[in-house]
Design a protein around this nucleic acid. Structure first.
Length: 1097
RNA sequence: GGGCCGUUAGCUCAGUUGGCUAGAGCGCCUCCCUUACAAGGAGGAGGUCACAGGUUCGAGCCCUGUACGGCCCACCA
């Protein structure tokens, strides 16, 4: 009894036990010094913010499949787990908790206090995530668990930041950022969602001040301008690489783009439609012109920060006013009317736009565009970080924005400047974290220059060094990276890697550092921070072995120095602080540390054995939503830090001129190629082998790419097709599913869903215990149950045989070395094959292994699971086991028991990566009863460390023959069923198969599986059917009526088929152009169909 | 507005370089609790492959267009 598997499959019991054993025996741990070709994966670190959902579950399952397979293939496989600190998200959650529990803000507890609390949160939820991964069966090397905020990562972050700073790829600039007024931090574009709000469009009069033409402008009032119109007059220094000096994407214009309007076009606005615009004309002058312009805005309060009015240069209604001024209502400031053909769409609104550079992204672009032009405009910030108005707002100072809006609108109304207030629907950006509206806000931020980093990262995907699966996802990567928009990396948060820059009086620095060791102080590169700001410098010096990189800038007429030092320069940091320098209070964008993940987890910047062995990693598995945010940045930073060539500092644009190449060698010095193992060969996947061989890997190493393959897993949606998320409440905790169905069932089902189609719908239901689960997982659970029971069957037979000292087993001992050539732990099935079913099932197994290999090397996890399913359930259980069942325990069973055992052995190996718990558990049991698998030799104690099955040869003849036998059996069953034959009572069958001489050898098989007796006496009343060229006469059934029907249907089908084939063959084009083999095949089929038909007449 | 993807059985989805009667699971119908498994077994019904053109001897598959759905990016004051 102890030898038996429990009668019912209960995943909960076996899963806990199997995982415990794996952990106890350290099965997941890898060492770089171990033998085997490297195979490595780094987990996309889940956010510590919350628990894992099904999206993580599918992602983790697929990685585990790859790692377990690689491990079984004898590779030195490591899967590095970890968690992301998820800056904003985590801080927001903890702050919210602080507020709700203790009614405290972060300012009450202070920076240290808050960070301490977040660490406590991290401990709790990090542990939860790890335990979820363990429940899933993930075979991560837990000894190597990392956190994006741990010391190793911190060091990598500091090193990288310093490199970037030194290379001039980090710069500080004023930029309009998305400001979360509630959290008082800037947030990235991707942390914003848009919400439709009902608001108003306020139409406001801006009186034109007649007295002043803008003296800075050359006169040009009518349609055609003498000088290039604004918007086309982009800075000549803008590089061809697509960014200006701020890294803004270069916008290119051509005459056929929408920025110009064609006045002959009917769609162009009525030249002067005063009714439409609500304008009045002045009574004097040769041509009537309005005395004011009307602006329509959704945000009247921002007019306090207006610095210009913009119109389209070719809009005849207003272009005469370009160069004049308006008086800004409520403030009395005089602001210019400028032309900006990018901002202004004459067809929209009044064709007149207020420009508020400090509070609107588009207006900010206007400011930038006009910065070095004659018509440069001001930029005025009217907002405090907390969302109230500042001194610049005059009497509105101190009001919150929404209050100011109404105050402004009311005052305008009082002054008769508000023409109308029309209801308007618009989209307003909201912070994903605080759910409050985002304010564009002008602030000082650090940026990473993208162009030099993006270029190489684009190249390696274009040239196929990095491959996407499915391939089409590369497009998203390429198009996003192609924009090369600079990356704002400052976050006004306390939770994260603090920016390693100290700010202070440049004069202090000069006296102490520069002057102290002037001979040693080597100027490494000049840098311009803002165009036109003379005196801004960028120097990197080396003093006493410590590198110090300095950027200077003028702030309020004072020269301020920004100093960056590499990690481990504590003394220098202290010295700086003694001099009054203060460290930047901001932290880095979370993605900054995530971008380093593949190499930082392996120990970089130290040249660790892990890095040498496992970098580049073999594949990255992730969702398509972070191809840009994460994948692209990992490639960039991987190449920047790990590449042997200093690509990060190659001057991509001579015009940029800010970065010199002479310090590029600094990167090379960091890199010690000796740590490489030149004998390393390819990663596992076939395609790489048949393309460039080991050169590919060598080249990839030179380039420093973090992975060769990017496999994109599908997004899991709920039953309504909506993305799962916690806020929607439609998320499913994988642990809930594991509780209801088991981890193997979850894994199996998720794998079948990992198709190339992007999204998977998952109808969710709540069970009695309130757990979110889905009937979808019944599929996997049923499969596991089937495996459980089939294994029980095999094991019960082994027990019996063992008890009786089976002859079959003894015989197999003799056969065991007959044809085997593999090592002792091989799973190749190759006993002495006798019967057709034996030959067939072995051939099918071999084909299945082959298909599984192909599927997995293409990351087609669904095909892998499907292949396993079809072979195990359909071929093995439904056919083979049923075929050998009656004779299994008898002498005449031949070596079927051996084959059943060996196939089970192979199936366990083949499916272990997919359903590790159940396969491992059965493996143990199988080891007890058949330690040598009836002749295969010694097997490994643990399946996790056993060999991946080898695909042996395909027996085409056996497959062909067995297929025919199947057809005959199905035909007989069919008739039996239609006649409601007693399932246990055999029918009498006569087979006419003169053309198939070998068929008589399989009569016994047919009798078994079709429940019949085969006789040779003709019966005139027999029901006749045909299958695969054999005529089948079935006697002993009543009810020929249905047979008539069936024969009629069959006949009709044949007639149709014959007609179709005849017409095809009658078509000369077909016989001439189609492949000869196909035509011949058609002829044979036609002949066969006609023969069948004639027999049915 | 730009780009990408999808539309195949009642539901969820496969369908390889175009090639015989388009498949699976679930659900449904009939029969069967046969000592591995009713979470099972045997059989069955069910599809004008979104629509319209085109290429081809031949189209679910390739091309063009349309409709509907989804995603990403940019978002008009």
């Amino acid at each position: 009894m102890s030898n038996e598997l429990p009668k019912t499959y209960e995943p909960a019991a076996i899963e806990a036990e199997a995982y415990r054993v794996w952990l106890d025996e350290n099965c997941f741990h890898a060492e770089p010094s171990s033998p085997g070709e490297p195979y490595s994966i780094v987990i996309p670190p889940p956010n510590v913010t919350g628990a894992l959902h099904l999206g993580h579950a599918i992602n983790s399952t697929l990685q585990d499949i790859l790692i377990r397979k690689a491990r079984m293939e004898g590779r030195n496989a490591v899967w590095i787990p970890g968690i992301d600190h998820a800056g904003i998200a985590t801080q927001a959650v903890v702050e919210k908790q602080l507020k709700e529990r203790d009614n405290l803000t972060r300012h009450d507890v202070g920076r240290e206090g808050l960070v301490k609390r977040i660490w406590e949160w991290k401990q709790q939820y990090g542990d939860r995530i790890i335990s979820q991964l363990k429940r899933l069966g993930c075979s991560c090397d837990w000894d190597r668990t990392r956190f994006t905020l741990d010391e190793m990562c911190a060091k990598a972050v500091r090193e990288t930041f310093f490199k970037l700073f030194k290379d001039g790829l980090v710069y500080r600039g004023k930029r309009l950022v998305n400001w979360d007024v509630h959290l008082q931090t800037s947030i990235s574009d991707d942390e914003i969602y848009h919400e439709t709000v009902q608001t108003h469009l306020w139409h406001i009069k801006y009186p034109i001040v007649d007295s002043g033409e803008d003296p800075r402008l050359e006169v040009q009032v009518s349609g055609k301008s003498e000088r290039p119109v604004a918007g086309m007059a982009l800075e000549p220094q803008v590089s061809a690489q697509g960014t200006d000096e701020f890294g803004e994407p270069l916008q290119t214009f051509s005459d056929d783009e929408g920025s110009r309007i064609d006045l002959s076009n009917d769609n162009a606005p009525d030249p002067v439609d005063y009714n439409k615009t609500g304008l009045r004309t002045a009574s004097t002058g040769p041509s009537p012109r309005p005395t004011f312009l009307v602006v329509a805005t959704t945000r009247p309060e921002t007019m306090l920060g207006d610095t210009a009015i913009a119109v389209h240069s070719e809009d005849p209604r207003w272009n005469w006013a370009i160069g004049k001024f308006v008086e800004l209502p409520l403030t009395g400031r005089k602001i210019p009317i400028i032309a900006d053909d990018i901002l202004v769409d004459p067809k929209f609104g009044t064709g007149v736009v207020k420009v508020t550079p400090a509070h609107d992204p588009n207006d900010y672009s206007v400011w930038q565009r006009h910065l070095s032009q004659l018509d440069a405009i001001d930029i005025i910030n009217i907002m405090n970080p907390d969302g109230t108005l500042n001194d610049a707002a005059g009497k509105y100072k101190g009001l919150a924005l929404n209050k100011a809006r109404h105050a402004v609108a009311n005052d305008l109304k009082d002054q008769g400047l508000l023409i109308k207030e029309e209801p308007y629907e618009t989209q307003v950006g909201h912070s994903d974290r605080s759910k409050t509206p985002i304010q564009p806000y002008l602030s000082d931020q650090w940026f990473v220059k993208m162009a030099p980093l993006a270029e190489p990262a684009l190249r390696v995907v274009r040239d196929g060094t990095i491959q996407f699966f499915p391939e089409r996802h590369a497009q998203q990567y390429l198009s996003w990276l192609g924009e090369k928009r600079d990356w704002p990396i400052s976050r006004q948060l306390w939770w994260g890697h603090r920016i390693p820059v100290w700010t202070g009086d440049a004069k202090q620095l000069g006296m102490t550092i520069f002057a102290a060791d002037a001979a040693d102080a080597k100027v490494i590169s000049p840098m311009t921070i803002h165009a036109g700001d003379a005196g801004n410098l960028h120097r990197t010096v080396k003093i006493g072995g410590v590198e110090i990189s300095v950027q200077t800038a003028f702030v309020n007429e004072e020269q301020v120095a920004f100093v960056c030092v590499p990690p481990g320069s504590t003394k220098t940091e202290q010295e700086l602080e003694r001099l009054g320098f203060v460290q930047d209070p901001d932290v880095l964008d979370t993605w900054f540390s995530s971008a380093l993940w593949p190499h930082s987890t392996l120990g970089w910047p130290e040249q660790t054995p892990e890095l040498a062995k496992w970098y580049p990693t073999s594949v990255l598995l992730t969702g398509r939503d972070i191809i840009t945010l994460w994948v692209a940045r990992m490639v960039m930073m991987g190449m920047y830090n790990m590449g042997q060539r200093p690509m990060g500092v190659q001057p991509v644009s001579p015009a940029a001129g800010e970065v010199t190449t002479d310090h590029a060698l600094a990167n090379v010095e960091n890199f010690d190629p000796k740590h490489r193992e030149p004998e390393q060969t390819l990663p596992v996947h076939e395609y790489a082998q048949n393309t460039q061989g080991r050169d590919a890997r060598g080249r990839a190493e030179d380039l420093g790419i973090p992975f060769y393959h990017v496999a994109i897993n599908p997004t899991i949606l709920d039953g309504k097709g909506e993305r799962m998320s916690k806020s929607k409440g439609n998320g499913v905790d994988p642990v809930d599913v594991i509780d209801t169905h088991g981890a193997d069932a979850l894994r199996f089902t998720l794998a079948t869903m990992a198709t190339e189609t992007q999204d998977v719908r998952m109808p969710v239901k709540k069970d009695a215990q309130g757990r979110n689960t889905s009937d979808k997982f019944d599929f996997g659970r049923n499969f596991c149950n089937k495996l459980w029971n089939a294994s029980r069957f095999v094991i019960s037979n082994l027990e019996l045989t063992a008890a009786l000292g089976s002859e079959a087993q003894a015989r197999n001992q003799n056969n065991k070395t007959a044809e085997r050539k593999q090592n002792s732990d091989s799973s190749s099935v190759n006993p002495a094959l006798k019967s057709l079913p034996d030959r067939w099932i072995v051939s099918r197994f071999n084909a299945t292994v082959d298909e599984a290999n192909k599927a997995l090397s293409a990351y087609r996890f669904d095909l892998y699971a499907k292949t396993c399913y079809d072979f195990f359930w359909r071929d093995f259980c439904d056919w083979y086991v049923e075929a050998v069942k009656p004779t299994l325990k008898t002498e005449s069973g031949g070596n079927s028991l051996a084959i059943v055992t060996q196939i089970l052995d192979g199936v366990l190996r083949l499916m272990h990566p997919l359903i590790p718990f159940i396969t491992e558990t059965i493996w143990w049991k199988l080891n007890e009863l058949a330690p040598d698998r009836a002749g295969l030799g010694t097997v490994h104690k643990r399946l996790i460390h056993s060999a991946w099955p080898q695909a042996g040869t395909i027996d085409a003849q056996a497959e062909e023959r067995f297929t025919l036998v199947q057809e005959i059996i199905v035909a007989i069953r069919n008739v039996r069923n239609e006649h409601k034959a007693d399932p246990k009572k055999p029918v009498v069958v006569r087979l006419e198969s003169g053309t198939i001489p070998w068929l008589k050898d399989e009569h016994r098989l047919i009798e078994t599986l079709a429940v019949c007796r085969i006789h040779s006496e003709p019966d005139p009343n027999a029901i006749r059917v045909s299958a695969g060229g054999a005529e089948i006469y079935i006697s002993g059934l009543i009810g020929p009526a249905t047979d008539k029907l069936r024969q009629t249907t069959q006949k009709e089908a044949l007639v149709r088929k014959i007609a179709a084939m005849k017409s095809r063959l009658g078509n000369e084009a077909y016989t001439a152009k189609a492949p000869a083999a196909l035509v011949e095949e058609t002829r044979q089929q036609l002949a066969q169909a006609e023969a069948e038909l004639s027999k049915l007449e």
